[in-house]
Design a protein around this nucleic acid. Structure first.
Length: 403
RNA sequence: GUGGGAUUAGCUCAGUUGGUUAGAGCACUGGUUUGUGGUGCCGGGGGUCACGGGUUCGAGCCCCGCAUCCCACCCCA
């Protein structure tokens, strides 16, 4: 038997019901917030991700599906959505056009990782990107939109918030932090040695107890923000307070992608195991110029759909549509004619095997049909069809001439 | 990429120190003698015990390999 590749799943039946319900819900909300759909290719030039996500990240360093195509191009299956949307934004010259551009998207992403619950090699994200808005109100809008989607789906969460600073304060802090780490000498673990070079802020999050003891007095980025970053962060907290959105400040929160600055946030669930981040995002004001566009402020987020699926509280299923059945072979042509007519406006399913009434009712019930329509000998003789409303438990017999 | 656990019917799981034709519940399917479901009763189909080797008179059970899932690490949505 040929099976799907490791970490790549089929989505069908109940899972697809949930998947589709999520997309419909999130799409409706994104539209209400004034966002427009954008579809970008699954395959992009490798350089796009190296320059946006960043070579120091694990995503680019070891998790990309990278290969050379038949035209000798170095290409990658997209590991995340933002880079492609930004490329499209620049390629369509929207950066030069100016103004505000708000997009949402959803689709498959690919990362070559060791799979576990909530972590797949092909997974799906729903995300939004906003271009051209410098105001921290837009950062708040992103967070409110995620909260809105999660609330609508009945999903509980905790919101973690941090500020990563910008080019004015981050580099200074980084120097400060690295010199602090160096002051710890050889006492730090091997992972931290590596992090010191690639992403120093991550050392603060080390699971090693000995490291944690050393870092209690480490400088915190949140205390080293420049005045602009500081006041924006304070303003963001005030806006969230005013809208009754709870949050916790997590000074260790770092986004895994290099392009983020200032606002960083992550929504986590405590009910789905260790892969607990269900949505993450933040501001990335420098990314457009990194990709040769005209400098444009931007902010966005992405949600991991598979991680949300089991948390979604689905609405009660409602009976709908018609089930058609014949009680003997002679009635089958009549039932097929009826179904053809009803199908123009109603969901209609036909059972081809003649059965007694009891089994047809069972069949209609099983597919959750609202109406069970049957033709037997009696109906055939009187040119009519028997229809039972399975919800109201009312029966009617109507003439075939009237349908 | 590193370490650990699991894998028996469509699903959730039993299966004794290695011993005849591998079981249950749910699901599916049929019947229930005059045409009424979701909730009665009776029956039926369905398993290369993940896969490949090995040990043994004999393997679902022991050993090795491999695949997938799960857990921790790394990292992330």
């Amino acid at each position: 038997m040929i099976q799907s590749l490791r970490g790549m799943n089929d989505i069908l039946s109940d899972d697809y019901e949930r998947f589709d319900y999520f997309i419909q819900t999130a799409t409706a909300i994104a539209k209400r917030y004034g966002f427009h759909y954008v579809e970008t290719p699954l395959l992009e030039e490798t350089a796009l991700f190296k320059r946006s996500v960043g070579e120091s990240s694990d995503i680019v360093g070891k998790e990309m599906y990278q290969f050379t195509d038949k035209g000798d191009n170095d290409v990658c299956l997209r590991p995340e959505g933002t880079a492609g949307v930004v490329r499209a934004f620049i390629q369509q010259k929207l950066d030069k056009k100016g103004g505000i551009h708000r997009f949402y998207y959803h689709g498959a992403m690919f990362r070559y990782e060791r799979p576990q619950k909530g972590r797949l090699r092909q997974f799906h994200q729903f995300g939004v990107e906003s271009f051209g808005v410098d105001s921290v109100y837009e950062d708040a809008l992103m967070i409110m939109m995620v909260a809105d989607i999660l609330k609508t789906l009945g999903i509980g969460y905790r919101l973690k918030l941090n500020s990563l600073g910008n080019q004015n304060c981050m580099p200074d802090y980084r120097v400060k932090l690295v010199s602090f780490i160096e002051s710890c000498g050889d006492a730090i673990c091997g992972d931290c040695e590596r992090r010191k070079l690639t992403n120093p802020i991550r050392v603060l999050d080390c699971k090693n107890e000995a490291c944690q003891a050393l870092y209690t007095n480490a400088p915190k980025l949140i205390n080293n923000l420049c005045s602009g970053c500081h006041s924006d962060f304070e303003k963001l907290k005030t806006i969230l307070d005013q809208h009754n959105i709870g949050y916790e400040i997590d000074t260790h929160l770092v986004r895994g992608l290099d392009y983020y600055s200032k606002t960083a946030f992550e929504f986590v669930s405590d009910n789905i195991g260790s892969q607990s981040a269900i949505a993450g995002g933040g501001r990335y004001d420098r990314l457009i110029e990194f990709l040769d566009g005209k400098p444009t402020p931007a902010v966005g987020f992405a949600m991991g759909i598979e991680r949300l699926l089991e948390l979604i509280v689905m609405p009660e299923p409602v009976r709908n549509g018609y089930y058609f059945g014949a009680m003997e072979n002679e009635s089958l042509p009549l039932i097929l004619k009826c179904a053809e007519k009803y199908r123009q406006t109603e969901k209609s399913v036909v059972e081809y095997e003649p059965k007694n009434l009891k089994n047809h009712l069972k069949g209609a019930d099983r597919i959750n049909a609202r109406y069970c329509a049957v033709i037997g000998e009696n109906e055939r003789n009187s040119n009519s069809i028997w229809i039972k409303d399975l919800l109201e438990q009312k029966e009617t017999i109507i003439s075939l001439d009237t349908i």
